[in-house]
Design a protein around this nucleic acid. Structure first.
Lengths: 226, 226
DNA sequence: CGGAGGATTGAAAGCAATCAAGCTCAGTGG
DNA sequence: CCACTGAGCTTGATTGCTTTCAATCCTCCG
């Protein structure tokens, strides 16, 4: 995370490859690796591409004037990030972990003449993002910090949970501060909630980033406030 | 607000009128009046229309399992509401005040064959909504209740503020509970913040729903936490 | 005039933020 | 091989803000 912010994705051409579709390229596609902490774009950058997360995790953030940070969303594999507003990015985006992305050249407001199905993909991504942001609101609207954290863990469980015998395993790619900035809490409070779940035998921690969900139904109940 | 929820917008055909576009209707448009508290749609209703707010204000809400309510957004004149997710409405929508809406039959994922520009309008509305939801997050991420309320008032000021001599006037269409559910606070806390601004001569109240902004720059400073 | 719903104000309790101190672990260098 | 270091995580004590509960006010309207 000590790498200086760079705006080099479009300039480092040698790392990009053009993938033609049939005889002529209908949609320009460029693949790229991001190392941890590296930026994909910054707020108010012109948005000429949308980005598909292939592997890894990215973080979409907006900064308050006082320097604090709001994590708007995490981008997991399969997610499309970087939809523009007025032709510009409305958040910044950087890699939580080593991440592979594919950039699609795209202006959503220009009508599809080349690849009509791609346009539908963009529209579906936009509608999905609206739905995800709404879910995020419900998370923030919960009463107790522990309810918010439980709801967040349930989200991760559904999204990136892996089977582990009778239980399920979550590898938390982000740190406690990221979770705090996502939920509007402090890292200390995140830690306390996780400790509480551990004491209640709802989860177990292998290490700070490897969580075993022992009782998913009780975790979901916590998220609902019961 | 004692009117029972009704699902009658599509069944009360006599209140609707079809507006043809030239010789044949390219996009079906239906106009409708909603009285205060009346629902336009409910969560998980099939979404066959998107709705344009012509006058009045609507409230987009989602309900928690424990009965509490999260106000996701307010829809002001010019806003397009009701964008579907997986073909269904992801929120419920009801009228804060007497409201006139125009319903546009629309499936955003079906490609435009009749009116291509309308499709772009839908896409722009979706991207706008994403941006608005992100702004809403920044509001919720603020530290103090008074900062959130100030940020909300600034939003209203920009959106529906009217000139009033040297000052500006905001008619608050929604009540304190609506604001509270929008900001994740209680009605009492909203009231206390407003009282505080009044004591600081930042605003003046003509009545509970009519606010005169005496010092907009100080209101904006409050929203930034200074 | 009386009633009802919303808004305001007050007092007390509850919960997260803050400040501060250990802890763990990975990386580093002697 | 092991002490050192630093970053992130955890835990503890205190503070402060919001919530909660309750009472009163106000305004609209029957």
């Amino acid at each position: 995370m000590l790498t200086a912010p760079t705006r080099d994705i479009h300039s480092v051409q040698q790392t990009l490859r053009v993938i033609p579709n049939g005889s002529r390229p209908v949609v320009e596609r460029l693949s790229r690796q991001l190392s941890e902490g590296q930026h994909l774009y910054f707020e108010s950058d012109p948005a000429r591409f949308v980005y598909e997360v292939v592997s890894g995790v990215v973080r979409l953030t907006r900064l308050h004037k006082d320097g604090r940070r709001q994590v708007i969303a995490f981008g997991f594999p399969g997610d499309l990030v970087g939809l523009p507003n007025d032709g510009r990015h409305s958040t910044e985006c950087d890699a939580v972990t080593q991440t592979e992305i594919v950039a699609h050249r795209c202006d959503p407001l220009v009508l599809p003449d080349g690849d009509p199905s791609f346009h539908s993909v963009i529209m579906a991504a936009a509608l999905d993002e609206i739905s995800m942001l709404q879910d995020h609101f419900l998370m923030l609207g919960r009463r107790l910090a522990s309810e918010k954290v439980a709801a967040f863990l349930c989200l991760l469980l559904d999204r990136i949970g892996e089977p582990l015998g009778a239980y399920r395993l979550i590898h938390l790619p982000m740190n406690r501060s990221d979770i705090a900035d996502y939920l509007g809490l402090t890292p200390e409070t995140i830690s306390r909630s996780i400790t509480q779940f551990r004491e209640q035998k709802i989860i177990a921690l292998e290490d700070a980033h490897t969580m075993i969900v022992l009782d998913a139904s009780r975790l979901r109940a916590m998220a609902e406030g019961s």
